[in-house]
Design a protein around this nucleic acid. Structure first.
Lengths: 104, 104
DNA sequence: GCAACACATAAGTACATGCTTATGTGTTGC
DNA sequence: GCAACACATAAGCATGTACTTATGTGTTGC
């Protein structure tokens, strides 16, 4: 089950910070370490978890490996959320509209 | 940070099963145990985690405590997802439509 | 080739977490 | 009151996980 990997990956605060950084644009592993007081292997392990969950994808460029948000992971979360649409609050309606509009 | 509690709560497969059961309607703690081979205290602990995360809410009825999906938790996930709307895939557009329509 | 760099993997360790059994709390009905 | 029930909490334990240091792999440029 891929949901398991996704939620486990996002359960860690450092990995959420990394993911949020990537929301600002593609970054390599070293750049992702900036600001986070974490060792190089730790970052590498976190990125491995995020990648296995389908939340980020990588692209080697020379010596560097660039990471970016993988839309597939977001889609998986959206699909999971959709299963509980019967319980979505009213405010979610506006949110769905926003999401739709920004996706052009 | 409430996101931390939400993702941690959903990282556990048993808790996701419980949450999915509640999507079918309100159930008490004993009824939630059906099918899941889990002790009564374990279920109680899981429900406590889900409640602390804002994913479910409880309502005591006599000796029973009924649990149901808490829309606030879903909204929190939706809000988190919205932060990454720039990376939503095309298919997410249809999903957002679906979510909006079903929310009437 | 090889030195420097960017990153990944290995192995070990401290702490978090999910489970158990035992016990406590609140409610019902006699 | 008190016995039976539904659930919560406490304490202990086994496993998972996030970290560390050490080392391996792949790339660049001299």
């Amino acid at each position: 089950m891929i949901e398991a990997d996704i939620f486990k990956a996002l359960a860690d605060p450092t990995r959420r910070k990394v993911f949020e950084k990537l929301a600002g644009g593609s970054l390599n592993a070293s750049a992702l370490r900036d600001g986070l007081e974490i060792s190089q292997p730790a970052m590498s392990q976190h990125l491995s978890v995020l990648r296995a969950a389908g939340l980020v994808r990588e692209q080697r460029q020379g010596r560097f490996v660039n990471y970016e948000v993988d839309p597939d992971g977001l889609l998986a979360i959206g699909a999971w959320l959709a299963r509980y649409r019967a319980y979505w609050p009213k405010r979610m309606e506006a949110l769905a509209d926003l999401l739709k509009d920004m996706d052009q």
